[in-house]
Design a protein around this nucleic acid. Structure first.
Lengths: 162, 162
DNA sequence: CGCAGAATGAGAATCATTCTCAGTAGAGTA
DNA sequence: TACTCTACTGAGAATGATTCTCATTCTGCG
């Protein structure tokens, strides 16, 4: 647990602290914080959940294979979370332990757009209690939850016929 | 809307009513309820969310390509829902409008097992209200929500080390 | 019966993702 | 500084779930 990190300490500080926390996680896992990995974290920091093509678009110097490989390293070390919906590409975002921001996703079922949203804290707590109960009853050990709100985004609802 | 179906009417009856409702949905979409499609619905009726290999295992007479094609027809007509998590195969289950049973999923992050679970109705209602508010605020039209509870199942938690 | 459109199934094609491998860079060390 | 060891890189090949193609078979209907 030497690399454990409190979300509050990071949320309270700037990007420098976040990168330091990322470095800690990677070092603890026995890998280095290379410039490619730094670049990926930087891109994810600046936007919502991104697909691989979107990440490559932001950083044209990244090789596709390296981006995929580094993303899986970052996922394994808990720096990045891979989220997958019913669209062709998976999306990647910084893990909540780093951003210190628990949130959910609005997902456009038409274009695949994903937007971060928050739920009232009281509801979130109530949810946590209920899920803990439900998981235990089924013999599961609880790790967390993902709440995806399905719908259509403004752009896809817009009157675009003909 | 001639093919609209109230979930209560189906939930109250046996499988016959369900198949009739499926037929209605398909006819309304201009396709027929063939024996292959019937077989798929039958398999999904008898178990939780299944992957394609699992469906083929149950019905060895189904061709892989036909199963995929028919599943996509069933998904497009609202008979079946495709659910995708971080594992290799997507899973398929009957749509809630047919089963009349709103539920969520416990997902084992190790083996990919998916189990249906219910939440207290009061919480579900509170959730609906909150999600409606959140979606509207972001300009989304709400279609529904998916709550996935991440964890490890009994089998994967078990002391299997050496 | 006979036609037309839909469905079937075997295999090929697609495409996101992962793997391979030869070359490179970086940390530690003397 | 030069050396070594190891991890990292990137181009391309391989993998594998899913979709497409197409020739054949079925089905409902006049």
């Amino acid at each position: 647990m030497s690399a454990s990190v409190t979300s509050s300490s990071i949320a309270a500080n700037g990007d420098g602290a976040l990168h330091a926390a990322v470095r800690e996680l990677l070092i603890a896992a026995g890998v280095t914080y290379t410039s490619n990995r730094h670049a990926i974290v930087e891109v994810l920091l600046s936007a919502g959940p991104l697909t691989l093509p979107e990440i490559l678009h932001e950083r044209k110097d990244l090789a596709q294979s390296s981006a995929y490989r580094n993303l899986s390293v970052l996922v394994e070390t808990g720096v990045v979370r891979r989220i997958v919906h019913d669209h062709d590409h998976a999306r990647f975002e910084l893990d909540e332990q780093l951003t210190g921001h628990h949130h959910h996703h609005l997902v456009c079922s038409q274009c695949g757009l994903v937007v971060d949203v928050d739920l009232p804290m009281a509801l979130e707590q109530e949810l946590d209690r209920a899920l803990e109960r439900v998981a235990t009853r089924s013999g599961f050990t609880l790790d967390g939850h993902d709440l995806d709100i399905r719908g259509k985004c403004t752009r896809c609802c817009a009157p675009v016929r003909s």
